[in-house]
């Protein structure tokens, strides 16, 4: 199934709506494990973590369509790549915001230097801001698409390196599952949390896809009206 066909379909949007409401209703009712510092703030798990998943997925879509643009030279691929990155960036900011308030409660500060993941994601957000600055500085649309495509491929690979290799080498992270901290699977994420967490992931990813695909379709309609393609 192609991207364009998938985004015009209704069923997954219905699922997204249902799961969004499920997350926001049941997420506040479900009995959470009584953990010392986290307490009720553990409910942020249903908002903070899926933000990153949604961002990652949208950035992967951006990567995929950037590669596709470079090999096919079809401007439509570039439109999809751009809009996905835009909504991905939005989710990145939201992830930072929700993470920041959570950090204030549990770690005691808005921003923690020792936290590699936090700094890595801040860098990723900067990278994609630079991506849009790059786009805005070209007037020729073909050159814009080509150069920003190359940039986003490079950026994505370096971003993967950043969040996967650097924390391993320097090994300091306060997140669960890093450097001596137990992972979610071992004790945090009990079955009750799981029941909301996985649907929440699907819901937020669905919301991200929906938002970006709406922007893409608006752009496609515009291009058609301007008879570009």
């Amino acid at each position: 199934m192609t991207y364009e066909k998938f985004t015009t379909q209704i069923w997954w949007k219905a699922i997204t709506i249902v799961l969004l409401f499920y997350t926001c209703i049941y997420g506040f009712i479900v009995k959470v494990p009584d953990l010392p510092i986290l307490e009720q703030s553990i409910r942020n798990l249903f908002f903070h973590v899926p933000m990153w998943f949604a961002m990652m997925l949208l950035m992967m879509i951006n990567l995929f369509f950037s590669i596709k643009y470079l090999s096919s030279n079809s401007q439509r691929n570039d439109v999809i790549a751009e809009k996905s990155a835009l909504i991905g960036l939005l989710f990145g900011f939201l992830g930072l915001a929700t993470g920041s308030v959570w950090a204030k409660v549990t770690w005691g500060a808005w921003w923690v230097f020792a936290e590699v993941k936090l700094n890595a994601t801040a860098a990723a957000v900067l990278v994609y801001c630079a991506y849009f600055i790059l786009r805005s500085s070209f007037s020729d649309s073909e050159m814009k698409a080509k150069f920003s495509g190359v940039y986003s491929i490079f950026a994505f690979v370096m971003f993967m390196v950043f969040i996967n290799i650097i924390p391993r080498v320097s090994g300091s992270s306060l997140h669960p599952g890093n450097g001596g901290n137990p992972g979610f699977n071992s004790y945090d994420l009990d079955n009750n949390l799981r029941k909301v967490f996985y649907p929440a992931v699907i819901a937020w990813i669905g919301l991200g896809l929906w938002l970006s695909s709406l922007l893409v379709r608006i752009q496609f309609v515009k291009r058609k009206l301007d008879s570009i393609d």
Partner: peptide, 26 residues
Amino acid sequence: LFFLLINIFSIVGVFAEEHQAYDLLI
């Protein structure tokens, strides 16, 4: 839409905040 979404999460932030003023929300 952007600000609406931001709103959602500032609320989540508020309830996560263990400040005295927000005690009632905990």
